[in-house]
Structure formats: C-alpha cells, structure tokens
Design a protein around this nucleic acid. Structure first.
Length: 652
DNA sequence: TTAGGGTTAG
C-alpha cells in the first residue's frame, strides 16, 4: 500500500509545499489525520489552502465512509471563515454520501452565514436532489435567483439528469433549450430514454449526435441489453470503434441480468483474450454468473484472481464470493470467507443467512442472527426473508412465527408479501395446512402467485386435491402461462391415480400452448459445464452414461429400491414409467459424474426444477451404494446426499 | 485546488 509520507517529502512534513504534496498522495483517513496534525503543529503559510485541500482529500477517499465525512465536518467547523470552495467541497461530500438529504440543510446553513452560491454549488446540490428525490424544483429556482444562466452546461446537464428520473419529457425540454451541449449532455438524454423504455427515441438521438464518444456507444449497448435485445446489442458491440472496460462490463452485466450466465462467461473469455484487465465490477458479475450456473471450479478460479489482484479488500467483491460459494454448494467456504472479512456490510450478513437457508442449516442462520443482534446491527426486510426461509427449509415452524412477530414488534418492519410467502411455505411443509389458509385469509395484502403457489404445495403435502384445485383456479388467472402450476396439479392427480384428470390438465395446457419446462441438469467437470435434459442422448459419452444408468438400476434394485412411479405424469404401464424415471436429467448428470469425477470430489449437480421424489430416493441410495457425496441444487434449495441420507430431511 | 454522462452484490 502506498504510504503518503514515505516518498520525497519528509516523514513529518512541516512546510506548506511538503504538506501539500503529502496531501496529494493521501489515500486513507488515517493519513489525512496525520497530515492534519502536521498543519496544526507547524502553522505553515497559506494554511487556508492546505485546509481546503485537506477537506477535498477527506471527502474524496475511496468508498467514502460516514466517519470520513464526519471528520471533514469536524475540520470544517474549526475554520473561522470557510470560503466558497470549502463550502462546495462539503456540499459535494454530502451529495455523494449515503444521506444526501443532509446536503440541503448544509446549504441552508451556508446561506444563513451570508455565503453566495456559485455554479459549482448548484451542480452538487442538484446531484443531491436527484439522489434524495427531493427539493429539485426549489433548487432549480434558487439557481435562477442566483443568476446561473441556462448556458451553463454543467448545471443544466445536472438538471437534465435530475428531471429525467421523474419525467423524460421535462428532461427533453431542458435538453432542447440548452444553448451549449457537450457529449455528456447528449449521453445523459440518451440514457434518460433507454432507462425509460424509449429505445427508439434513444437510437434516434444517438444517430443524430454529432460527436459520439465511447460512452455514447456503451449507453446504447446497455439500453439494448436491458430490454433483452441482445442481437442488436451484440452487433453494436461488434461495430464499436473502441471497446473500453465498461463496454465489456455492460455486456457481461446485461447477460447476467437476463439470466444468461453462459453468454456472460463467453464475453468474459473474449475480454481476457483481448487483454482487457477485469475490475471489481467485472469480477462481481462473473461471480454472479458462476453462482447462477453453480460453476464452482470457475468460481474458485475467480476467487484466486481476486486475491492476486487484491480486489478482495472490497466488501462487495467478498459478498459476491460468499454468494458464489453458497450457491455452488460450498456453504462452509462461504462461512470461511465471511469470517475472514475485516469489515462487513449488512449485505454480507444477509447473503450468508440466505445461503444457510438454502442449505437447510436453520440453526446456523439463527446463530448468525443472534450474533447480529449482539453487535447491535439493524436487520432489514431481506434479513428476515433469509431467516424465514431458513426456518422453512429446516421445518422450524415455531421459530418462524417468532421471527415473523419480532420483525414487526422489535424491528418495526412491516412484513412484505415475500415474508408471508415464507410463512405459508413453512406451514405447508410442516403439514399445517389450516394455519396456512388462515394466514392467507388474514393477510393485509392481496395474495400473489407466489403465495398461492406455496399454498398449492401445502395442499400437495396433505394430498388435499379439493383445495388444491381451488387454489389452482386462482393461480391460472394470475399467471396463465406458468406451466409449473399445471404440473403441480397434474402431479397431485397422478398421486391419486386420477389419470382422467391428469389428461384433462394436459389437454388444457396444450390448448393454451403451454409446454412443461423440460427438466435440465448440469454438472461441471474440468471447467466445462455439461448439460442434460430428460432422456438426453446428445452427449458424446451417451453410451457410457446409459450403461452406467443400467448398472445403477441393478445395484439399487439389489438392495430393495423400487421406483416411485406415482410421480410420473402420464398414464403409462409400470415398466414404461420406471423407464421414464430412469432418464430424468438429474440421474443422467449423476451417472456422468460417477463416470468422470475423481473419487475425492463430491458430485455437484444443478437442476432447473425441483428434484423429483423418485430421484431424491434414488440419489440417496446412490450416495450409499457408491460411497460418494452428491450435492444437488434444485430451484429451491440444496440437497447434500451422503451415506444414504439427505441434508434436507425431507423438507423440500 | 471543486462540476455533468455509461458498468457493481442479497
């Protein structure tokens, strides 16, 4: 790390010039404080200039914390007659802080002391109005009172940005009236259009723009990825005169947001070939891709890269690593990274708690929360989603009720629909259908598809197809194109051997043009993701995989395994059903893992849907017969299979 | 010695 006082200037600078250059290379609050002491002790000439610089430095430290800003305020308050530069520096600091609302009161204080604001003051003030969503028009009026002309491109571009957050039309009026425009002005207007869906208007402006720079291109690429038009985004990306780091990041982030992590990774690969060095944003995004894919090996590689490049001091990056490990099945490593962090944010805690939840480790999630309480950290609504989820996945209904009450009574948080969803979930999983129904009836919010979906699952646990049918009718109205609900009902009928009803649901689905989402499982071997759909025969090792499946069947049956054919949707004869089950995607992936994974490593499989009941039984037995650890992530949670047992204890 | 636009985690 660079040490401010260690270069050509003396260790403890005393003269104006030495102190000034020490400030120039100051990178931490600690150094700033040391320099402050030097100014106080030596009383150098032109101290006013040094104080101005000190304020500037301490309000511009990387990831400026509240303590840095408080410290700047302390310095500021000791100044007898701060000049406009100093006032502006403080205003800039507040505008970029966590609490931009304080900017306005600071400005009021400045006016009360008779200070006259200038164009700089207004750019900062307007930025604060934009991020706190308040006082915008009043500040605009003030700028006119103090004679800021609409030819001031900085102030008016800031105003354009501020108005664009509320109303693009007003922003456009500002844009049209501006006498002088720079590339920033044009780009701001283009962003305003892209972020409010008017991609055509954005494109028109982009084509009209006289001097496009690389940011203009980036803005357009980003606009297209945001609305999922990747073909256009991609062709613009290819045509760009200059690709900068944000360009690559925009594509990677875009693919991730559209849940297309494989393509995000492919762009990342191209980026490396082009010799562009990733930054924090890139690695956070790539870790997110790994989390989506369950790509642990690649995730580990990114982590090593992060450590080598010393990007791991950043809390966001560490949070992304925790999330990656949790979503890739290595919850213990997630915990280790969390423990190793010097500084944590609420997101760090929330990420780990949610991670514990999907691994069914309810006790540890609770312990983390107890630790948070001991540290007097304020949880937010997401903390409670994690905790309630943890209870649901561990079948801890009583504790869920406690959290549900505490979030309201102790922390003053009003439960959102997600929290009700978790509660219905935990009640359903613990076979308390009546309580679940009661809760839904008493909810102050209109139940959405998630709530009804949980209720439907609860009906399934109880095999209450009568209520299930009612719930499904409502669900179909809310989300007529979601195939999952039809499949749930169909499964319910299949369990009851009501094949006619099964057929009816299938015909209904067909008539509405809804296909069942095909089950798909993936497994990572030697940094390559192998994907299997139900009955897949496209893989190069297909023959071997099917031979292995045959062997698995024989070995499982020899210890008494009977396929649970009640989960098969269709009315097939028993033998066909067994055949149907044996080619479920998760079984194919596990067979592939047995063939290709080294014995030391657990077999890690990611499935897009919920694991089927028969596969769950079969994989438990495989873990025992083959003495292998198998980690399966389905769309809901993790299943760790070992010695014939699953970590989920049947709560899924 | 202060300014405006693009990309970041649950």
């Amino acid at each position: 790390m660079a040490v401010a006082l260690s270069f050509s200037s003396p260790l403890r600078p005393t003269t104006h010039d030495d102190i000034s250059s020490a400030l120039q290379s100051c990178t931490s609050l600690k150094q700033a404080k040391q320099i402050h002491v030097c100014i106080l002790r030596n009383n150098p000439q032109d101290a006013e200039h040094l104080y101005a610089k000190l304020l500037l430095v301490s309000t511009s430290l990387p990831s400026m914390s509240a303590t840095a800003l408080d410290y700047a305020l302390l310095v500021f308050e000791q100044l007898e007659e701060p000049n406009i530069f100093m006032w502006n520096t403080m205003i800039r600091g507040y505008a970029g802080s966590e609490s931009p609302k304080r900017t306005i009161s600071f400005y009021t204080g400045m006016r009360e002391r008779g200070m006259v604001p200038n164009n700089y003051t207004f750019t900062f003030l307007i930025k604060a109005c934009a991020s706190s969503n308040s006082s915008g028009p009043a500040v605009h009026a003030q700028s006119i009172v103090f004679g800021i002309p609409d030819s001031d491109v900085h102030v008016y571009t800031s105003l354009l940005n501020m108005y664009a957050l509320g109303n693009v039309e007003i922003a456009r009026k500002v844009f049209d009236r501006m006498k002088y425009k720079t590339a920033a002005t044009w780009n701001s207007m283009i962003v305003a259009y892209t972020s409010r869906g008017g991609i055509e208007a954005a494109k028109e402006l982009f084509d009209e723009m006289p001097d496009k720079n690389e940011k203009s291109w980036n803005v357009m690429v980003c606009g297209y990825t945001k609305i999922g038009k990747f073909d256009v985004a991609r062709s613009m990306f290819n045509d760009m005169p200059l690709k900068t780091l944000p360009t690559w990041n925009a594509m990677i982030v875009g693919y991730n947001q559209a849940s297309r992590p494989a393509e995000a990774l492919s762009i990342f690969h191209q980026m490396q070939l082009a010799g562009v060095k990733p930054d924090q944003i890139t690695v956070v995004s790539i870790l997110h891709s790994c989390a989506l894919l369950g790509a642990l090996e690649l995730g580990e590689w990114v982590r090593l890269y992060v450590e080598k490049r010393k990007l791991d001091r950043n809390i966001t990056v560490c949070n992304a690593i925790i999330n990656m490990y949790a979503k890739c099945g290595s919850i213990d490593k997630a915990m280790a990274v969390f423990k190793g962090m010097r500084e944590r944010s609420l997101v760090s805690w929330n990420t780990l708690i949610s991670g514990m939840a999907i691994h069914g480790r309810g006790e540890e999630a609770s312990d983390l929360f107890t630790e948070m309480e001991a540290k007097r950290l304020m949880p937010d609504d997401i903390t409670f989603v994690g905790l309630l989820n943890a209870c649901a996945h561990a079948g801890l209904a009583g504790r869920a009720w406690t959290y549900f009450r505490d979030m309201q009574n102790v922390y003053g948080l009003r439960p959102k629909i997600e929290h009700y969803g978790c509660m219905v979930d935990v009640l359903g999983r613990t076979n308390q259908l009546d309580e679940a129904v009661n809760l839904v009836d008493q909810m102050p919010i209109e139940p959405n598809a998630v709530i009804l979906g949980s209720l439907l699952s609860a009906c399934r646990v109880r095999n209450d197809s009568q209520l299930g049918q009612k719930v499904l009718e409502k669900l179909v109205l809310l989300e007529p194109l979601n195939s999952g609900y039809y499949v749930l009902l169909s499964n319910m009928y299949a369990s009851a051997k009501r094949w006619k009803d099964v057929t009816r649901v299938r015909i209904l689905m067909k008539s509405k043009g809804i296909g069942k989402t095909p089950g798909c499982s993936s497994i990572e071997v030697n940094n390559t993701i192998h994907e299997f759909v139900v009955g897949d025969k496209t893989h190069l090792q297909t023959q071997e995989i099917y031979n292995k499946l045959g062997e698995i069947s024989r070995r499982l049956e020899s210890i008494g395994y009977v396929p649970d054919t009640s989960v098969v949707l269709f009315d097939l004869d028993e033998e066909e059903k067994a055949e149907n089950l044996s080619i479920h995607s998760e079984k194919l992936a596990v067979a592939f893992g047995l063939l290709n994974n080294s014995r030391k490593k657990p077999i890690r499989v990611v499935k897009n849907l919920r694991v089927c009941r028969d596969c769950h039984i079969a994989i438990k037995l495989i873990s025992q017969v083959y003495d292998r650890e198998i980690v399966l992530r389905d769309c809901n949670r993790f299943h760790h299979f070992k010695d014939g047992q699953c970590s989920c204890k049947e709560f899924w």
